[in-house]
Design a protein around this nucleic acid. Structure first.
Length: 320
DNA sequence: AATTCCTTCAACCGCGAAGAA
DNA sequence: GTTCTTCGCGGTTGAAGGAAT
């Protein structure tokens, strides 16, 4: 691997440190007119004595018009904590599931507020377990986190590929645009990806109900939150299901879940599959989740019991 | 009022992945 | 297949401002 260039290795004369309002204005004006294009060549074109990397960071974390700054709601706090429990320090993936936030902001918020808050409550912020019970059950969560991380990363890659242009257009458009980008319009009320996991189980529980309507879109959606307000998940290999376009019956879902169980939740097989379009079936279910954190906590514990076939000795989400 | 300590967060740095040449 | 470039991510740093002493 070739060592990449960094700001510190660029020719002398490049400015570092805080950005001035003049520099901000230059960067904003240039991007609004031309788009960012190649970050490495942007500074020269925009008349900035900064490295491309610095420009990119400034734009993404500060100047971009579609970012909300500060004031995380309690709902967002919960989402961050939940996603962190699943994903660890995958700030960019977490940020994709919170509208108008940046990975840097979430990372800072975690390190300055949430981490301390959890510690004060006697919860290990790394394992999300009570501090006096850090070893027990850790394997369960980390195992689930592995495959869910892989899936979310693949989803994020897909999002970036398919919508980078559209995103820029939306960013540059007027604030009254009636066509917000899908991930910008994501509502945190329904996005917690964990909900999608137990949605699968709720769906499985509900399979006997004739009201269950389950379908597989032909393609993986660009966001885990669908525009119809339903949640999605990609736990089940599409190859284990009969058709990508026909409605899926309850029995088929149960069979797929069983197959998934029988693989022992093999992370490797899941990750291999991530690079093939046909692997992840995305199941859309009615919003069986709850906006109530206590209910979510109970649901989550129930899922772990279901998944592991064993009762949990310690709650995953002690009271906040 | 001066100093020290603490908190926040913008920005930097190094690394790995992906893609182009 | 190899080398090189660019991008994006996560960890870390340090300046700034507020709180405490």
């Amino acid at each position: 691997m070739v060592k990449s260039s960094s700001c510190s290795e660029k020719p002398a004369g490049l400015k570092k440190g805080p950005w001035t309002p003049e520099e901000d204005q230059k960067l904003m004006s240039y991007i609004q007119l031309h788009g960012h294009g190649s970050w490495s060549s942007l500074p020269a074109k925009a008349g900035l004595r900064r490295c491309g990397k610095s420009c990119r960071l400034r734009w993404i974390n500060y100047l971009r018009p579609d970012i909300k700054r500060g004031n995380f709601s309690s709902q967002e706090d919960q989402t961050i904590i939940q996603l962190h429990a699943l994903l660890g320090n995958k700030w960019s993936v977490i940020a994709h599931h919170l509208p108008k936030t940046t990975d840097n902001e979430i990372k800072n918020y975690w390190n300055t507020c949430l981490k301390r808050r959890l510690t004060r409550m006697g919860i290990n912020p790394t394992t999300h377990k009570p501090l006096n019970d850090v070893v027990k059950d850790a394997a369960n969560l980390s195992h689930m986190a592995q495959w869910e991380t892989a899936r979310l990363e693949a989803e994020a890659r897909q999002q970036v590929k398919e919508h980078s242009k559209m995103q820029l257009q939306n960013q540059l458009g007027s604030s009254s645009s009636s066509q917000p980008h899908s991930w910008s319009s994501t509502s945190t009320e329904n996005t917690p990806i964990m909900r999608s996991m137990y949605a699968m189980m709720l769906a499985a529980d509900d399979l006997e109900s004739p009201a269950s309507t389950l379908s597989f879109p032909d393609t993986v959606p660009t966001n885990s939150k669908r525009t119809d307000g339903n949640t999605t998940f990609g736990l089940i290999s599409q190859s284990s299901l009969p058709s990508s376009s026909s409605p899926v019956t309850g029995g088929e879902i149960m069979a797929a879940v069983e197959t998934f169980r029988s693989t022992g939740y093999d992370c490797n097989s899941v990750q291999e599959g991530l690079h093939h379009d046909d692997v992840f079936g995305v199941l859309s279910v009615g919003n069986g989740g709850s906006d109530n954190f206590e209910e979510e906590r109970q649901d989550w514990e129930a899922i772990l019991e279901l998944v592991n076939g064993l009762p949990l000795s310690a709650p995953c989400f002690p009271e906040l």
